[in-house]
Design a protein around this nucleic acid. Structure first.
Lengths: 356, 356
DNA sequence: CTGAAAGCGCTTACAG
DNA sequence: CTGAAAGCGCTTACAG
């Protein structure tokens, strides 16, 4: 490949090597690498050829040191990994790749290490998947903003930080309308943590959906979990001792799964005795028995949108203000009592597996 | 915090700033940062104080450029994210954090971009979660080895590349012995892709386990899937038209889930009519109905071990040779026909959620 | 035990 | 359109 008579190509080629190989200066080579316009076409050719022959790749640290930025973004996520993070990541990476960015994924102590990571020059900005403990995050976000460090949140923050959100209210409203259609009266809303904004928005959407359907939302029994499967299991176990619902709407699929599991183990038929719906359309939603009626989040698109927003902030280019709200989609399956095409293998064949 | 009378601390502090602040040279500051021994204790104190006062963090690009390495490793994984990747990542990150490394996660075109990423100086080494297409990977691994670029595989490679593996044979053998105890005779092995070494090892272990239990392993019906839920569903659908098994051992949990789903939808009782076991102990394994008997992989430990191995390679320190095999653990639940403590909520409470 | 200086591999005004 | 030179923020022999 290398027709050069260089001693050994053990060591990585540098811009100096390229310059020598084509008889031009480092400055000129740098110019063609960075696609500047004022270079003679023939020169561009010569440089390109030398770059190819030598298998040269610019050293990212040198580029960063001389002002180019790290071309890396920090993806800061809680340690407890949800399966949908993969879809988020996938969307992020797709856009990142186009723009030449790479993803540094941090799940340990990401709150306390974010600023240091930036100060070390490792990243040009951050995407946070924000979670429950709003107050602790808030201090960090405030500081980042003050220091003008680019960041975007995926999820619903308390304040006006730049964020990619989904239409929680609309999704939950669809569930409510569907429940109303089924004629459910005694309804449990299985909530996430008390200060979780997504969960609260879903509750709100659910209420107005019921109201709009002419039902009394005051009758909703709201109980709390922490989004985990176990918490759903136990919350339902507890409520059943004092209340006999005909339907449960869980603020996420995991808790819905926990609920179904409890009901199943106690001989209560889903959806015959109690209907269940979730939120997320997680990987397992279609494989649960009965398959889970839920609200699909556009995770991949959320990631992609977040990355686009972050890029424009890093490049200090005109930025869309504030929050972006992405639509959700109501997915009817069997757990609500609808006649689901259980035996159509087509459904299982469906290759667009959300959150797989 | 900064009692200094500097004009503005808008801009990040550099080593020069620290040197000035404490009246020493950059060289000396560098020495205390890097923990060299030949520095006077009092000097160390002065430098430390200045560093704290200024909130100084060394620029990683400058460090890398002057020979320090990127202190970053590339985690190269297929795009199709498995939920257990999170456990892998968690183990990796834990060790990485101790050693001051960060994780660049790459899932797009990671085969073709690995060498470029290294040449750009972005990473000091790689951890690959190797997958099916052995031949394509082989070229890359060969090249990495030739170039003396540190890397470790998680999973079972064809050749003698450094790899963290699990005891597939032992795990599958346990399943076989358990199946023998149940008295199953007409057994289906639901395999992964034909050239997948993990799957082949599990088949091998399963065979010898049956043999050791005095059964004829020749009677095993081996059918193929691709590790996806759908492929399990369809493989079972197909085999049932010509064969009537009393037990199925799937090479992973997803296919086991697909199998259970098919059986369930067609009124075939699990485990009453047909028993099922899987491999992985994925997140959903304990939540499936019936809960899935399976073999647990120590994902987090695999990640941690891989990272340790990689570090010693990066540091060119004496390295354990070749492969490391980690033990698996057989997990008996209900899908094999055992009396599973379905109603013990303790089980659900079990907070050690593998692959969560 | 400490400092002056060269060097890592780039980019970017500044000249021409 | 192209090149010489300074500079980015560190580390590391080399002197002392």
């Amino acid at each position: 490949m290398v027709p050069d008579t260089s001693e050994l190509n053990e060591t990585k080629a540098t811009i100096e090597d390229v310059a020598k190989a084509c008889g031009l200066s480092r400055a000129t080579v740098s110019r063609v690498i960075n696609g500047e316009s004022n270079v003679k076409p023939l020169t561009i050719e010569r440089v390109r050829k030398a770059i190819n022959d030598l298998g040269y790749h610019p050293n990212v640290h040198a580029q960063a040191l001389s002002g180019g930025g790290a071309k890396t973004i920090g993806i800061m996520m809680p340690r407890i990994w949800r399966s949908y993070y993969s879809s988020l990541l996938s969307g992020i990476e797709e856009v990142a790749a186009q723009k030449g960015y790479y993803a540094l994924v941090v799940t340990r102590d990401y709150l306390s290490s974010a600023e240091r990571i930036f100060d070390e020059g490792r990243v040009d900005g951050f995407i946070f998947r924000n979670m429950d403990h709003v107050k602790e995050h808030d201090r960090l976000f405030l500081s980042l903003r003050k220091r003008d460090i680019p960041f975007v949140l995926i999820g619903n923050p308390l304040r006006d930080y730049p964020a990619i959100t989904i239409d929680n209210v609309g999704g939950a409203r669809s569930v409510a309308q569907h429940f109303a259609m089924h004629g459910f009266k005694k309804i449990v809303f299985l909530s996430g943590p008390k200060d979780n904004i997504d969960s609260n928005d879903r509750y709100f959407g659910f209420r107005i959906g019921l109201e709009e359907s002419g039902m009394d939302p005051g009758g909703i029994h709201r109980i709390y979990g922490d989004y985990s499967t176990q918490s759903g299991y136990h919350a339902i176990q507890e409520i059943l001792s004092e209340f006999n619902p005909d339907a449960i709407f869980a603020a996420n699929d995991r808790m819905a799964l926990g609920a179904i599991l409890y009901l199943h183990r106690n001989g209560i038929h889903v959806p015959g005795d109690i209907a269940v719906a979730g939120f997320d359309d997680s990987y397992f939603a279609k494989y649960v028995t009965p398959s889970l009626t839920t609200v699909r989040q556009p995770f991949s698109e959320m990631g992609a949108t977040a990355m686009k927003e972050l890029c424009s902030r890093i490049e200090r280019s005109p930025v869309s203000s504030g929050k972006i709200i992405l639509p959700t989609r109501f997915i009817v399956r069997a757990s609500c009592g609808c006649p689901y095409r259980n035996d159509e293998s087509l459904d299982v064949l469906d290759s667009i597996e959300n959150n797989e």
